[in-house]
C-alpha cells in the first residue's frame, strides 16, 4: 500500500480494506472486519457478501486500511489524560438536596 493511502498490491495479494457497517434503526457505524479487494467498488461488494448475509446493515463503508490513523496504545495514558481528570464533566460530581429527583 502506498504512503498516500492509495491501495496497491504489495505482496501478491489484493489491498486490504476496513469494513464498517451501519445496523438498521439509525445506530452508528461499527467496525465489522476487513476484506481484500482490487478496488473500492469490489471491496464494497465483498464486504456485503462477507459481513451482511442476514440483513445486518443498511449502509457499508469501506476504507483503505492504510488510510486510517490510529492512536498508539503505548501512549494511551497521557493521550486520554485530558478527559480522565475532569470528574466535573459527569453529573455525579454535583450534589442536589436530599429527596429531590434531578
Amino acid at each position: 500500500m502506498a504512503d498516500d493511502g492509495t491501495p496497491a498490491p504489495s505482496d501478491g495479494q489484493w489491498p486490504l480494506w476496513e469494513v464498517f457497517v451501519q445496523p438498521p434503526r439509525g445506530e452508528p457505524f461499527e467496525h465489522a472486519g476487513s476484506v481484500h479487494a482490487v478496488d473500492a467498488e469490489s471491496a464494497l461488494q465483498n464486504a456485503r457478501d462477507v459481513y451482511t448475509r442476514r440483513g445486518e446493515a443498511v449502509n457499508i463503508w469501506v476504507v483503505p486500511t492504510a488510510a486510517i490513523t490510529a492512536s498508539t496504545p503505548a501512549d494511551s495514558g497521557p493521550f486520554f489524560d485530558p478527559g480522565n481528570d475532569k470528574p466535573y464533566r459527569h453529573p455525579q460530581f454535583y450534589s442536589v438536596p436530599r429527596g429531590v429527583r434531578v
Binding site: 498490491p9 489484493w14 479487494a37 482490487v38 478496488d39 469490489s42
Partner: peptide, 10 residues
Amino acid sequence: AASAYAAKHT
C-alpha cells in the same frame, strides 16, 4: 480478471 479490471480503471 479482477486485477486486470482494476489496472485498467486505475
